[in-house]
């Protein structure tokens, strides 16, 4: 494994950087490290939050079992983490679970589908075919509870963010921003180009885990008709 960069994030967290660029290999290393720390939590470990190239580790200063050799809590946690991660390696890609997400594209559910088609010189049907034609890796959850950041959108259907974000994007909306695509779990403001909507709930506060998709899983979009969208429970939220 390449040399990790470990830096303090204030007095109660540190951040580990696994690479400079977003790619599947770096992502796999982040995922492996997160699951390794969760399995072998040291006393005082609170949680860790994986992102594209980094893992932030949160700890409780009061509960760390420090010995005198460590000048600071940061140094202590850094040593513990480096020791635990020595053999964590990378998450094997074939262990990734694929989650199918039904999406009703265009129309009232995807008001920006025509725009995305137009700026790329495609028909709406071609955009849908490309968006449903490959699996996307969930690089991270963030922005809102359960919001998956999916990378690897082909340039052929990429689109810039809206200059002025919409104030209300309905829950379930599927958007494109640059070469990223994502799904809004809650009604929030947002600037992504909305091409469709899924009737599935991505944030499930009563469940364990409370989200439909997790970092490290794959998403496959499937086009459905408006009637199916309503049958699957969409539109009544």
């Amino acid at each position: 494994m390449t040399q990790l960069i470990v830096e303090p994030m204030g007095d109660s967290a540190l951040l580990i950087q696994f690479g400079a660029n977003v790619n599947e290999a770096v992502h796999a290393a982040v995922q492996a490290a997160a699951s390794c720390l969760e399995r072998q939590a040291f006393e005082g470990f609170l949680e860790c939050v994986p992102s594209f190239t980094t893992l932030t580790v949160y700890y409780d200063l009061e509960k760390l079992k420090r010995s005198a050799e460590h000048t600071s809590a940061f140094e202590f946690v850094r040593c513990r983490v480096e020791e635990l991660l020595k053999d964590s390696g990378a998450m094997p890609a074939d262990s990734r679970q694929i989650i199918e997400i039904p999406v009703c594209y265009g129309g009232e559910h995807g008001p920006d589908l025509s725009y995305v088609a137009e700026i790329n010189g495609l028909s709406e049907e071609e955009v849908i075919r490309i968006h449903t034609g490959q699996d996307f890796l969930v690089y991270a959850l963030g922005f809102a509870p359960g919001f998956p950041y999916l990378g690897g959108v082909p340039e052929r259907i990429s689109a810039p963010r809206k200059a002025t974000p919409r104030l209300h994007i309905p829950a379930g909306s599927v958007g494109i921003a640059g070469t990223q695509t994502g799904i809004y779990p809650l009604e929030t403001p947002g600037g992504w180009q909305i091409i469709g909507r899924t009737p599935l709930a991505l944030f499930r506060p009563g469940d364990q885990p409370p989200v439909l998709v997790q970092s490290g899983q794959m998403i496959r979009f499937k086009a459905i008709r408006t009637a199916d969208y309503e049958r699957l429970g969409g539109g009544c939220r």
């Binding site: 609170l46 949680e47 932030t56 959850l141 922005f143 809102a144 779990p185």
Partner: peptide
């Protein structure tokens, strides 16, 4: 809440 940051929960 502790332990739900990875799901995007504040």
């Amino acid at each position: 809440r502790t332990g739900y940051g990875k799901y995007g929960v504040s």
